[in-house]
Amino acid sequence: MTTQLHADGRLRHFLTTEGLPRQLLLQILDTAESFAGVIDKSVKKVPLLRGRTVINLFFEASTRTRITFELAAKRLSADVLNVNVATTSVKGESLLDMLRNLEAMQADMFVVRHAESGAADYVARHVGPGVSVLNAGDGRHAHPTQAMLDAFTIRRHKGDFEPLIIAIVGDVMHSRVARSQIHALSALGTGEIRVIAPRTLLPRDIESLGVRVFHDMRLGLQEADVVMMLRLQRERMQGALLPSEPEYFRIYGLTEDKLAAAKPDAIVMHPGPINRGVEIDSRVAEGPRSVILEQVTNGIAVRMAVMSMTLGVYQEMPREPA
């Protein structure tokens, strides 16, 4: 695995939340908090990445992730190029040759999304010393900025992580989001992390990550402070791992009735896209405890934070007077 840190502990790349120290994750959250105020202003730009070039290199389709990375870079005043490899002619060119050509165009950062686990790490191992790589999702492996925007959203609503019970529900087996969430939440000192899923959608080694496993959804949601639903990723499944979608919804879909087992002030999250009537009922997704759209908004500030930190240009943004 490519080291993500410089010798002095600063971020060089952001490929995974696994193994990162708590203090660094808190620095990302604090930096994102300072950028959140910028997003609310009429002029939403700061000049920190002026003259820098960010290339979004997406080998896998995306909407929210690509757009929020693009917005984050533009709000930092960077020049942004979007390369959708699925629709771009590469004429038999290897990934390494493509990278070298893009780097020759004076790229400063690659944001990489790929269907294969380890792709972002491969890119990071082959870029020059002045180029940073951010993982926008690789196979089943990791989605670190999603995990950090989730943590940012939780902290804004709940404060310290130590007292919290956080339940992650659904297709953990195929979810890069779940893996990154578990590593980040553990490092941040979360009191209890639960995973709730059928046995066929849980990795065999999941308990080694320090989580509590539940197969009964109502039992797993008891007294939870945060309910994090996962997308059912049929495109990554091989074989019959599930009953019908209506049956899955009956057992593991989040409804107002099941949510009643959680704390009255529990928040509901989902990384999107939502499969309504499969993972979550529309009344819950649009209800008063849902923070799903806040997650999307918060993704801009978090990605601004990671971009500025990896390129080493972050400076303390002035906070609004209390």
Rank of each mutant, 00 (worst) to 15 (best):
M1E: 10
L5H: 02
G9E: 14
H13I: 08
T17L: 02
E18W: 13
L20Y: 00
L26N: 13
S42M: 14
V43A: 15
K44N: 06
K45I: 05
P47H: 06
P47T: 05
L48C: 00
L49W: 07
T53I: 03
V54A: 06
N56I: 08
F59P: 07
T63K: 12
R66T: 12
A72H: 02
L76W: 01
S77F: 04
L95G: 02
M105Q: 08
M109W: 08
A119G: 02
V131G: 03
S132E: 05
V133R: 04
G137V: 01
H141V: 03
D150M: 14
A151S: 10
I154G: 03
R155I: 07
R155D: 08
P163E: 15
I165W: 06
A167I: 06
A167V: 11
M173D: 15
S175I: 08
V177P: 00
V177I: 13
R179E: 14
S186F: 00
L188M: 12
A197K: 01
L202E: 07
I206W: 01
L209Q: 12
L221P: 08
D225Q: 01
M228W: 11
L230M: 08
R231Y: 01
R234H: 14
R234G: 09
R234W: 13
P243G: 14
S244Q: 10
P246A: 02
E247F: 05
Y248T: 13
Y252I: 03
L254P: 03
D257N: 14
D265M: 10
N275G: 01
G277P: 02
V278I: 02
V278H: 04
S282F: 13
R283K: 15
V284H: 08
V284N: 04
A285H: 00
G287A: 09
V296R: 01
N298H: 15
G299I: 03
M304L: 10
M307S: 06
Y314I: 10
